[in-house]
């Protein structure tokens, strides 16, 4: 037998804390470096280049956007855009969550509802939401309603299917046990299925936030007078890459924070569901 030091297989090697941190930031640093190098190369050829503004310039623009009020309206547009977008997102997601919870529960519990609604919801979920955006604008006008509706319509079918699936997957043993304790169908829905569906709802909301942002920005791009998506598509006309990049970074940060908030809420509110999250 050969007497050489045995090296671990790669599948068994795990990075320690310091190396983990390094590994996490490497891709971010690489992207930042690539951008900086590209930006410098372009600016060296043409100092007035607008496509890849220098990181320092983006910082300056961001500072101006966050602190300086718009001359005409007197409002700081960055914050009023954020407020407008977040309020649309919150309303759309809340409506979707409410509808999904109700329908997910009854489809998951009641065979009659499942037979009737499950194929219908499956068909609905095949409709590309953006394709019906014009219909929404025609029917609901160009105001807030159509944008909130697009978000709600976009994510509700997925949420319903996911919740119905989760409720239907509750162990039969639990449902039978509840029946032997004398529970009515309603009581089983309220006391057994609903509480166990809630953490799943938060989990699927986290997954739906990506599509929700997509629909929000699409709706704002088409017709709006405020909002993060609206601003990005507005300044596109002036090739204001520094503003666009600032907004993109801000949206990414908001999405990340929302995801984190939902995760913390579900961990806090449903300690019994720890391993399921």
């Amino acid at each position: 037998m050969q007497d050489r030091p045995r090296t671990l297989r790669w599948i068994n090697r795990r990075p320690d804390r310091a190396i983990s941190f390094l590994l996490v930031i490497i891709p971010f640093v690489l992207v930042f470096l690539a951008y900086t190098i590209g930006s410098e190369a372009r600016l060296a050829v043409n100092p007035a280049d607008k496509l890849l503004p220098a990181p320092t310039q983006i910082m300056e623009t961001a500072e101006r956007l966050i602190t300086e009020a718009d001359k005409r309206s007197g409002k700081i547009l960055f914050w009023s855009d954020t407020a407008a977008s977040l309020s649309r997102l919150a309303r759309g997601v809340a409506i979707a969550a409410g509808i999904a919870l109700a329908f997910g529960l009854i489809i998951g519990i009641l065979p009659y509802a499942r037979t009737m609604l499950s194929p219908f919801v499956n068909v609905l979920s095949m409709i590309p939401p953006l394709a019906i955006l014009p219909i929404l604008f025609i029917l609901l006008g160009l105001g807030e309603t159509s944008k909130v509706a697009l978000i709600a319509i976009g994510i509700t079918p997925f949420l319903i299917r996911d919740l119905a699936q989760r409720v239907a997957e509750l162990p039969t043993e639990q449902i039978v046990k509840a029946q032997t304790l004398g529970a009515s169908s309603f009581a089983i829905g309220l006391r057994v299925a609903l509480p166990q569906a809630l953490p799943r709802l938060l989990g699927s909301l986290r997954l739906s936030l990506g599509p929700a942002w997509l629909f929000l920005i699409a709706a704002e791009a088409v017709a709006a007078d405020a909002g993060l998506g609206y601003r990005i598509f507005l300044v596109r006309r002036y090739l204001a890459m520094d503003v666009i990049l600032t907004y993109v970074i801000w949206i990414t940060l908001l999405a990340f924070l929302l995801d984190l908030a939902l995760r913390l809420i579900s961990r806090h509110a449903f300690p019994w569901a720890e391993e399921g999250l």
């Binding site: 004398g182 529970a183 009515s184 309603f186 009581a187 309220l190 006391r191």
Partner: peptide, 9 residues
């Protein structure tokens, strides 16, 4: 509670 009434509460 579950069997006590319609609502199970």
């Amino acid at each position: 509670a579950l069997g006590a009434n319609f609502f199970g509460c």
